[in-house]
Simulated assay, not measured.
Amino acid sequence: MSWLQKLQERWEVKSVWQVIIILIVFACTGFTVMFLKQPLYNLAGITEETSAWIKVPYYLLTILPVYQLVLLAYGFIFRQFRFFWAFEKRMFRHILMFFDKRKNKIKGYSNNPGN
């Protein structure tokens, strides 16, 4: 079984061709965000000399949401919006579960009854 077929099964899509289109969408999104990063940094006045303490939060608050929006836009253009919308919801759910687990550990209890 090829790696494309494995991705087809994992992503539960209809064909290998759809997997290829999805990979193209990820590639286009990455390149687009790569080209948008510097203008967004320039807009905020961030330079090479700017501290990482400023760059990292700015990146997280601006570039990552831009990536998500560009991903959905390319998904729409390549007629794969439904896949990427489900992908975004799954990812957001995982992020929320991560923070929920951390909050519960901080409080000293867990959602798992075995603990």
Rank of each mutant, 00 (worst) to 15 (best):
G114T: 10
Q5W: 08
W53S: 08
M1N: 07
E88S: 11
I95A: 06
Q5N: 12
K107L: 14
F84M: 01
T47W: 02
N112I: 15
W11A: 09
L61P: 00
I54M: 04
Q8L: 03
F98D: 04
Q80G: 01
E48S: 14
Y41H: 04
V56F: 08
F87R: 09
V66N: 05
L71Y: 13
A52W: 09
I95D: 10
E88P: 00
Q68K: 10
R102Y: 15
I54D: 06
N115H: 13
M34Y: 11
L23K: 04
C28E: 02
T50D: 02
L40N: 00
Q80S: 07
K55R: 06
T32C: 12
T50W: 02
V66I: 14
I22T: 03
G108L: 02
L36Q: 14
F99D: 01
Q38R: 15
F26I: 00
F87N: 09
Y41N: 00
L4K: 13
L71H: 11
Y58S: 00
E49C: 00
I24M: 12
L36H: 00
P57T: 04
F26G: 09
F35M: 13
I22M: 05
G108F: 05
F98W: 09
Q38N: 08
R82Y: 04
Y109M: 05
I77H: 06
E12K: 11
V16W: 06
W17E: 14
S51R: 01
E12C: 09
K6Y: 08
L23W: 03
I24H: 02
G45H: 00
L40S: 01
T50M: 01
Y67P: 07
F26W: 12
L7Y: 10
Q68C: 11
R10C: 12
G108H: 04
A52N: 10
E9S: 10
E49G: 14
V70K: 09
I63N: 08
N115C: 07
V25W: 01
V33A: 00
F78T: 04
L96Y: 06
D100Y: 14
L4E: 12
Y74T: 07
E48L: 08
R10D: 13
L7R: 07
L72I: 07
L64C: 11
L61C: 11
L7E: 07
P113G: 06
K105D: 14
T50A: 07
K55A: 02
W17L: 14
S110Y: 07
I95C: 00
F98I: 03
N42H: 02
E49A: 15
F76E: 08
I77Y: 12
F92A: 10
E9Y: 00
F92S: 06
R102L: 15
F83W: 04
E48A: 14
L72E: 03
V70L: 13
R102P: 09
V16K: 15
G114K: 13
H94V: 05
A27G: 04
A27N: 07
Q5T: 12
Q8S: 09
L69D: 02
Q68F: 11
K107Y: 05
F92N: 08
R90H: 09
F83Y: 10
L64T: 13
V25T: 08
R90P: 01
E49L: 10
K103E: 15
R82Q: 01
Y59F: 10
S51M: 06
V16N: 13
Y67W: 13
N42I: 00
V13Y: 03
L43A: 05
R102C: 12
V56S: 02
F84L: 08
K89M: 08
K101F: 14
E49W: 06
V25Y: 02
L71T: 10
I63K: 11
H94P: 02
E12Y: 00
